[in-house]
C-alpha cells in the first residue's frame, strides 16, 4: 500500500478539503442554510451567492455545505460499520469454513440479488421519523456483502498460510489466530475497502434521499438537494449542478484514494 501515488494523494487531498469545507465552511459564510433571501429567489450565481440561490432564496453554497456535512457523516459511519461487519463475517466464514461458511455465503448470495438500495427503500415507511443513524445502520446492513466476499477469499488463502498452520501447531486458540495472524494481514485490504465503501455509502444515501426514502426534511443531504434540484435542472441548472458537483467530488475523492491504495496492495 503506497500512499504516495499521485492518484491516492489527489484523492486524499480532495477528501480532506471537502471534510474541512463541511466542518469549517458554514461558520465562515454570512448565511446559514435556512436563511431566506426572498428578494433573490432562484437567482443565478453572483458575488453575494457564489452558487446562486434556491426556491426560497436560500444560499446554495450554505445548503450544499450543510448537505455535504450530513452526507459525509453518513458515508463515513456507514463505511466503518460496513467494513467491520464484512471483516467479521468474512474472517469467520473463510477461516472456519464448513457449515458456518456455507450459511454465511448463502446469506451473501441472497442479499446480492436484492440491491441494497431497494431493501432499504422497502423498509423506509416503517422508519419514517426515526433518526438518520438508523439510515446509517441500514446502509451498512445491506452493503457489507461484496467486501465480506473479498475478506473471505483472503481468509481462506491465509488459512493454509505457513504461519497460520504453524500457530495452530503450537496450539494457539482460534481467537488468537484471528486477532494476531489473520486481521493484521487484512488491515491494508480493509483500509482500501473502507475507503471504497465510503464512496458507495455516500452514493447509497444520495440515491435513497433522491427517492425520498433517505434523509427527511427539514434536514438536507446532498441527495435531497439533488432530488429537489432535478425538477429545475433544465430551467435553473445551478440548483441541480451545485449539489451534483459536491456529490461527485466526494465520491470521486474516496474512490481515487481507494484505487490509489489498491494498485499497490
Amino acid at each position: 500500500m503506497n500512499v504516495h501515488r499521485p492518484i491516492a494523494l489527489t484523492g486524499a487531498g480532495l477528501l480532506a478539503l471537502l471534510v474541512l469545507a463541511a466542518s469549517v465552511g458554514p461558520l465562515l459564510l454570512p448565511f446559514t442554510h435556512t436563511d431566506q433571501d426572498l428578494r433573490n429567489v432562484l437567482a443565478a450565481p453572483s458575488g453575494a451567492h457564489p452558487l446562486g440561490t434556491a426556491r426560497l432564496g436560500e444560499d446554495m453554497l450554505a445548503l450544499c455545505l450543510r448537505g455535504l456535512q450530513k452526507s459525509l457523516v453518513i458515508g463515513l459511519l456507514a463505511a466503518v460499520l460496513t467494513t467491520a461487519l464484512s471483516a467479521l463475517v468474512g474472517t469467520v466464514a473463510g477461516y472456519l469454513g464448513g457449515v458456518a461458511d456455507r450459511v454465511l455465503m448463502m446469506v451473501v448470495d441472497v442479499l446480492l440479488v436484492l440491491p441494497p438500495i431497494l431493501a432499504v427503500a422497502v423498509l423506509s415507511p416503517a422508519l419514517r421519523g426515526s433518526s438518520w443513524l438508523v439510515l446509517v445502520l441500514l446502509i451498512a446492513t445491506f452493503q457489507w456483502m461484496v467486501t465480506s466476499r473479498v475478506v473471505r477469499a483472503r481468509a481462506r488463502s491465509l488459512r493454509v498460510a505457513g504461519y497460520v498452520v504453524a500457530a495452530e501447531n503450537t496450539g494457539a486458540s482460534t481467537t488468537r489466530i484471528v486477532t494476531r495472524h489473520l486481521l493484521p494481514q487484512m488491515v491494508p485490504l480493509l483500509a482500501i475497502d473502507c475507503t471504497l465503501n465510503v464512496a458507495s455509502a455516500v452514493l447509497a444515501e444520495a440515491g435513497l434521499s433522491y427517492f425520498g426514502f433517505g434523509v427527511q426534511p427539514p434536514d438536507v443531504s446532498l441527495g435531497t438537494l439533488v432530488a429537489t434540484g432535478t425538477g429545475s435542472a433544465l430551467t435553473f441548472p445551478w440548483v441541480f449542478l451545485a449539489p451534483v458537483g459536491f456529490l461527485t467530488a466526494t465520491v470521486l475523492a474516496a474512490a481515487m484514494l481507494g484505487e490509489g491504495l489498491r494498485d499497490d496492495a
Partner: peptide
C-alpha cells in the same frame, strides 16, 4: 471510467438531458 463511476446514476440521466437540451 473513475469519474463516470463517481457520478450517481440519477444525476447522469439529468446531465444527459442538460447536455442534449
Amino acid at each position: 471510467a473513475l469519474l463516470l463511476l463517481a457520478i450517481p446514476v440519477f444525476v447522469l440521466g439529468t446531465v444527459l438531458k442538460l447536455l442534449w437540451l
